[in-house]
Amino acid sequence: MKVAVIGATRGIGLELVRAALADGHEVTALVRDPASLAEKSPRLRIVKGSAEDATAVANVVEGQDVVCDTLGTRNVTGEVRLFSNAAEKLAAALQPDQLLITVTGIGAGDSKGHGGFLYDKVFMPLVLRRMYADKDRQEAIIRNRVARWIIVRPGFLTNGPRTGKVRAVTDLRGVTGNKISRADVAEFILAQAKSPEFIGKTPLLISPISR
């Protein structure tokens, strides 16, 4: 399988690159600085460019079976347009038979209000408001303009090990997000890339102890 990863140098994207290579797949990674991606493999193709550049995105998307958008940002003070700009470029480049798997997060779309009191009432409005406004724009572009998509909304991310224990929840009644490792999120994405079960859905990923 040919898998493209956008946002491959850290976090979920880096974990996904490692998992896909270990599973024997061909991986194409879009990165701003190729030197920042330490992974090496004959099956890893690195493309230098920005997720907001139409030419770079089209180059990465071409010929892929699955495209995974795992972009993140440390910008929590200024206006954020990274996610929606990248979604626009992806929507224009993807073919109808290609699958897009995008990571947004808890607080996007109808997962808003499922993060617990401090997250929902304090952290989200004071710190993450601009970021999640753009994630909402990103999700709307994907829903309206991409033929085959899965939007993955992880709970609270950690750098813990892969456990293989993930709940993917689409009925959020009574559910509050909890901690989940980036490695577990990457494993879920790879599993969906190989055998998609959530096309056209927005699963919230949490650990099994949450209800």
Rank of each mutant, 00 (worst) to 15 (best):
M1S: 15
A4Y: 02
A4I: 00
V5K: 09
V5Y: 08
A8G: 00
G13P: 00
G13L: 05
R18E: 08
R18L: 12
A19C: 02
A19R: 14
L21Q: 07
A22E: 10
A22W: 13
D23G: 10
D23N: 08
G24V: 01
H25L: 11
H25G: 04
E26K: 01
E26A: 14
L30E: 05
L30H: 03
V31G: 00
R32A: 03
D33N: 10
A35I: 08
A35T: 02
A35K: 07
A35W: 04
A38P: 12
A38S: 12
E39V: 15
E39Y: 05
K40V: 07
K40Y: 03
L44Y: 00
R45I: 06
I46G: 09
V47P: 08
G49Q: 00
S50F: 07
A51T: 04
E52R: 05
D53N: 14
A54P: 00
T55S: 13
V57Y: 12
A58I: 11
N59H: 13
V60D: 02
V61T: 09
E62D: 05
E62T: 10
V67C: 04
C68N: 11
T70H: 03
L71K: 04
G72S: 07
T73L: 12
R74T: 15
T77I: 11
S84I: 01
A86I: 04
A86P: 14
A87S: 05
K89T: 08
K89V: 12
L90I: 12
A91P: 00
A92H: 06
A92V: 01
L94A: 00
Q95E: 13
D97E: 07
D97T: 13
D97Q: 13
Q98Y: 09
Q98H: 06
L99D: 02
I106V: 15
A108F: 12
D110K: 01
D110G: 01
K112R: 14
G113L: 06
H114Q: 01
H114T: 01
G115A: 02
Y119N: 06
K121P: 13
V122M: 03
F123P: 10
L126H: 09
V127H: 10
R130F: 11
A133D: 03
A133C: 06
D134N: 04
D136K: 02
E139M: 14
A140D: 10
I141W: 01
I142K: 02
R143A: 03
N144H: 13
R145K: 10
V146S: 00
R148S: 07
W149N: 05
W149D: 06
W149L: 01
I150T: 05
V152C: 09
L157H: 07
T158H: 08
G160V: 09
T163S: 04
T163Y: 14
K165P: 00
V166M: 06
V166C: 06
R167S: 12
A168K: 05
R173M: 10
T176A: 15
G177R: 12
N178A: 15
K179I: 13
S181T: 11
A183G: 01
E187S: 15
E187G: 15
A191K: 08
A191T: 13
A191E: 14
P196E: 11
E197T: 14
K201F: 03
L204A: 09
I206C: 06
S207P: 05
P208L: 14
I209F: 15
R211H: 15
R211G: 05
